[in-house]
Design a protein around this nucleic acid. Sequence first.
RNA 1: UCAGAUGGCUGGAUGGCCGCUUGCGAACGUGGCUGCGUGGGGUGUACUCCGCGCAAAGCGCGUUGGUGAGAGGAAAGUCCGGGCUCCACGGAAACACGGUGACGGAUAACAUCCGCCGGGGGUAACCCCAGGGAAAGCGCCACAGAAAUUAUACCGCCCGUCUGCGCUGCAUGUUGCAGCUAUGCCGGGGCAAGCCUUGGAAAGGGCCUGCUGCGGCGGAGCCCGAAGGGGCGAAGACGAGUAAGGUUGAAAAGGUGCGGUAAGAGCGCACCGCGGGUCUGGCAACAGAAUCGGCAUGGCAAGCCCCACCGGGAGCAAGACCAAAUAGGGACGGCACGUAAUCCGUUUCCGGAUAGCCGUCCGGGUAGGUCGCGAGAGGCAGUCGGUAACGGCUGUCCCAGAGGAAUGGUCAUCUAUCCGCCUUCGGGCGGGGGACAGAACCCGGCUUAGAGGCCGUCUGACGCA
RNA 2: UGGGGGAUCGUCUAACGGUAGGACUGCAGACUCUGACUCUGCCUAUCAAGGUUCGAAUCCUUGUCCCCCAG
Length: 146
Amino acid sequence: MGRLLADHLRKRADFLRAQKGVRRSAAGLTLEICATPQPAAQDGHIRVGFTASRKVGGAVERNRAKRRLRAAAQAILTEQGIERTDYVLVARTATLTRPYDELLKDLAQILAAAHVKLASQTAKLAALAQEGAGDGDDAKRSDVRG
RNA sequence: UCAGAUGGCUGGAUGGCCGCUUGCGAACGUGGCUGCGUGGGGUGUACUCCGCGCAAAGCGCGUUGGUGAGAGGAAAGUCCGGGCUCCACGGAAACACGGUGACGGAUAACAUCCGCCGGGGGUAACCCCAGGGAAAGCGCCACAGAAAUUAUACCGCCCGUCUGCGCUGCAUGUUGCAGCUAUGCCGGGGCAAGCCUUGGAAAGGGCCUGCUGCGGCGGAGCCCGAAGGGGCGAAGACGAGUAAGGUUGAAAAGGUGCGGUAAGAGCGCACCGCGGGUCUGGCAACAGAAUCGGCAUGGCAAGCCCCACCGGGAGCAAGACCAAAUAGGGACGGCACGUAAUCCGUUUCCGGAUAGCCGUCCGGGUAGGUCGCGAGAGGCAGUCGGUAACGGCUGUCCCAGAGGAAUGGUCAUCUAUCCGCCUUCGGGCGGGGGACAGAACCCGGCUUAGAGGCCGUCUGACGCA
RNA sequence: UGGGGGAUCGUCUAACGGUAGGACUGCAGACUCUGACUCUGCCUAUCAAGGUUCGAAUCCUUGUCCCCCAG
């Protein structure tokens, strides 16, 4: 499996879409993923975004947190990511102080969990689409939130 | 040596692995622009539109590897001043609003900086000050206090005139009577101080003075005078003088002393303070000197205000260019209609406009993209002018340009330094480990945050020579 | 990033530069057999630091935090 090419997320709408997708968090960071929407999807590409709110600290702390997340994403996501997927890494207060190898472990662990959830969700959606308009209301109610 | 004052510089180092942005030149790819050739259309040259092919010279894009560069003194807060851009505007002035405020200079400009003056603090080095005007006007000065701004109403002091001489009760026409009390006299008591008595001390006794209160007499101004009357004292009323004093207050009308006066007063004098003009020094703010005035002007302008000076407004999300989808606009042509509907021209005739569909073209403009955007009030070195801020000249260098936002992630070693233990006081071992903080158009300042480290200069105290 | 506004008891709000007041809440007491209502009393605050002033919540400067607008 070759390395994937990572593009950066730049639009606020992309971040909001990922926020509504699958979310998993660990001590060092929070991960939000969703499928890349159609016009932007490209084979062999994933898209990655980084977020650090003002809870993390001032500008120095936030930039440093994003740099650590960016280094971790370069190490993990290009190897273990799934193409045509958006990833958003959210910094937490512990992102600054967590040892680097622990941070890598956190990311790999929640990445796997999020992938499982995302796969089941897309499978359900596909099944629903095949079932047709029979009782779509029920399915929507149980599933859309994830 | 200790304690301080002040100015400048710096803001961890090295290496391994993996990354980001960008400049330069190279290779490869692409074929967008350009170039060359060619076909067709508008319209024959020119010009222009659509298409095809070639090339690799230039511009551009992508990949690879090479090489160079890549956060700060505050990049921060956004408190001032400018550049730059757009908008408005004939010039200038005035008004309004906002800002600044000793003086001289520096500067593109400033609320900044330098020098100097004045005031305050400190033994000193040195530090701090929004530091114009309160005799242009308005306003405010709570409480307290006689009085808070025209100073004079009040208390008090002093002079004059007049009334008039304790209180209570009863009667009453003036007035009288009774009682009580103060001052006064006599007697004795208590307390305190002094003297004598004693060789000395204590106790006791005596004398005198003062205070206190008891009993009695006397009894309303007191003194002089035989009397009329005069003088003194105290009270009240009225009139005049006075601003010395009046418990307050943050602040009280020049201060202190002597003289002077009925009492007082800058009423007079000396010193200090204040003010006016003059002279001297200084560009000036201002300082000094003698002189005159006897003193007038309480504070607050970071209250309104007055004076002088400055300011057109908005801000790189400014602004410029390219420009999809969708919706809508305009022009032209065609179809439908041109019978009908609505509106306008008063009405008929007649003329014009609007409403439908299709095609072509045009412009505005959103998403998005590109530019603005890094050679500058630039850095460094030298030299000259200037007390300095700063300026002139010469040489040299090119020194960040991102856009969910690069300038790093991680590991190791060292090091300033901190903590603990040991110590032969030389040091050794173990652990922690860099303060504040991240460019967002640029520049000059200010303010705020902040561990340390280095280099000067100066002051005071102590010690030694 | 730029522009504008604000901060007063636990909460909502007043206060010409002169004792920070009111309402609700809380606590205690009274009333009641008990609770509610009512009455009485108490507690509690000027965002922070400087400056002007005799005196600052108010005026000025600096900082902190919050809100709104442009996008």
